[in-house]
Design a protein around this nucleic acid. Sequence first.
DNA 1: CCCATTCATCGTAAATCGCCGATGAACGAA
DNA 2: TTCGTTCATCGGCGATTTACGATGAATGGG
Lengths: 94, 94
Amino acid sequence: MPTDEREANELLARLAKALGHPARVAIMRLLVRREGCVCGEIVDELPFAQSTVSQHLKQLKEAGLIRGEVDGPRVCYCVEPGAVALLRALVEGL
Amino acid sequence: MPTDEREANELLARLAKALGHPARVAIMRLLVRREGCVCGEIVDELPFAQSTVSQHLKQLKEAGLIRGEVDGPRVCYCVEPGAVALLRALVEGL
DNA sequence: CCCATTCATCGTAAATCGCCGATGAACGAA
DNA sequence: TTCGTTCATCGGCGATTTACGATGAATGGG
């Protein structure tokens, strides 16, 4: 949790921006629900091409919301520990 | 609070997208803090041109986060009642 | 009735987004 | 080594965002 307000604004903005698309919210919900890792099943759950889903995952990863670990030929994604809590705290601190 | 998950996703995405810029987070914080209405003072608080701030305000308004009431030659903005609570609930429900 | 103030909107330019198909890289299996 | 699978990345397209200055509409003061 940043003490500086400017930092808090930028951090919250970064997280919020990452959630600023229904598909990415759906991905987050999916990963929280299974609270473990998932892979290309995410693609099956969404009505988008594989490359599109991959880009959404990239955005969530770059925002620090999720993490992807290589597991053989596939990649398992899971929620970055503490990320949701941080988001909640930032929204709470509005 | 929507019961349908798709609706919840779209709503959260809409709110999050509106918060997806540091300036807009700063505006929200400003309005929450004064928990009343403010006008062009917002412009003075931000390092942007008046027209730019006006656009940010428009986005927040369209997302349902703030409201603007005309008061003579100026416009007073305030947080839409319940909007922050709704946002918190949606983030909580992740 | 003017004029200044306040704010929204328009027009514009650069950057980013969102989507796709195609390609590339990494890995396991045969 | 040669496939097939899985996923990331590239290239491209139209749409959207972000920023600005300029203009326009509404209001109140003189």
